[in-house]
Design a protein around this nucleic acid. Structure first.
Lengths: 210, 210
DNA sequence: TAGATTGTTAATCGATTAACAATC
DNA sequence: TAGATTGTTAATCGATTAACAATC
């Protein structure tokens, strides 16, 4: 039943893509048109060879031996990640974290079209202009609208029940911020996000500095 | 100047520790006293050998050849991460993400004692019972109180200026949720958190499912 | 041409996985 | 004893880094 974790190849490289994208956009705003792997590397604290190897994955267009063309490389990364076409998303569970994510400006390619909750005080309101709907309308909603990504920020308990509704509603991907272990059919992409993993890493670094 | 990224050894294992901790606490609540690597592995979708190898790092006490003792293993992980002693933390920038983190219940070992902002509308209020103070009082505050961890959730622009104040104030660690590249002296632990890295990973998985 | 860069191939390092020894 | 488990050592795999070839 297990071995869910299909190896995707270049996970660390893919995770760095958003850093590159950010830096490149900053160059673009400054009017810089060409940039070297050295420049980027210095900016995000990795070795230049890492940048070169990673960017090769997206086949950045028209490089001369002077560096990467900023605009084209932005487009190449964006296309590589599928961020050139906006994906519509819903969010389940409008708590602190949920509201924060709804208002977060840093998710390119993602457009929240609705949020769902059980709390009657929240249902009917909007948060950052996104309507909060009754969770009991989820299935109907998914029949009417094509939604690609569902973001889970509700309490873990009933996660699997919701996930089943989502997969029946033909969602493509689930981004799971809860601690529930959830099962999805193989054609549904699943990403688990664990905020305290970062804290664990930081804590270990503190200990190492004694 | 660079090569900031001091290799810590077991980063992936350390990041998984919070998952183990979570599962073990769930067993504890159910009254389960002994648990095998197989149980844990099935629960978090990794191979049993991964659990065994990872847990060896924390030297879980008193195992019989029947599994790990839940209570003792919880204590061992907690101690390994330094989460047995509460660390006091402040948060800089009480925006959406900042407020969400202040209210997040899932950071063991971390106690927020104050938040800082520049917005006069926020200064003087409390968020989740944590007082929001004027950023101009940051240095004074750090002289009076021993603070271990600073969480950065403000706009990137002035990050380095704030970081300099923090390091002068003898902070031990910085958890950076902004996109600013920041420099810290070598004795200060630094952890960069990038929410959109997870989205990049998810997006790549969607593409792979075509 | 010399210099600076990306692109590519090879070497190294670390993390994951497998196999099995030790133990109660 | 047989069985089930952790602990340990070895093998494999993948990611990082180094070295250098190709190019304008």
């Amino acid at each position: 039943m297990e071995t869910e974790t299909k190896r995707l190849g270049k996970t660390p490289s893919i995770r760095r893509m958003s850093l590159y994208l950010n830096r490149l956009k900053a160059y673009q705003e400054k009017g810089i048109e060409i940039v070297t792997s050295n420049d980027i590397a210095a900016d995000i604290d990795v070795l230049p060879i890492v940048v070169k190897k990673d960017l090769q994955l997206v086949e950045p267009p028209t490089k001369k031996r002077a560096g990467y063309i900023v605009n084209g490389t932005i487009k190449a990364i964006t296309a590589f990640l599928g961020w050139d076409k906006q994906k519509s998303a819903i969010l389940i569970g409008v708590g602190h974290l949920g509201s924060a994510l709804l208002g977060y400006r840093g998710f390119p390619g993602l457009t929240f079209v609705a949020a769902f909750d059980t709390d009657v005080k929240k249902i009917g309101t909007t948060i950052h202009n996104i309507p909060v709907l009754n969770i009991s309308n989820l299935s109907d909603f998914l029949k009417k609208r094509k939604i690609e990504i569902a973001v889970l920020t509700m309490p873990s308990e009933h996660a699997q029940k919701i996930v089943d509704l989502l997969t029946q509603g033909n969602i493509l991907a689930i981004w799971n911020f809860t601690r529930a272990k959830i099962h999805v059919p193989p054609h549904v992409a699943l990403q688990r996000e664990d905020l305290s993993a970062g804290l664990a890493e930081l804590s270990a670094k503190i200990k190492n500095n004694q």
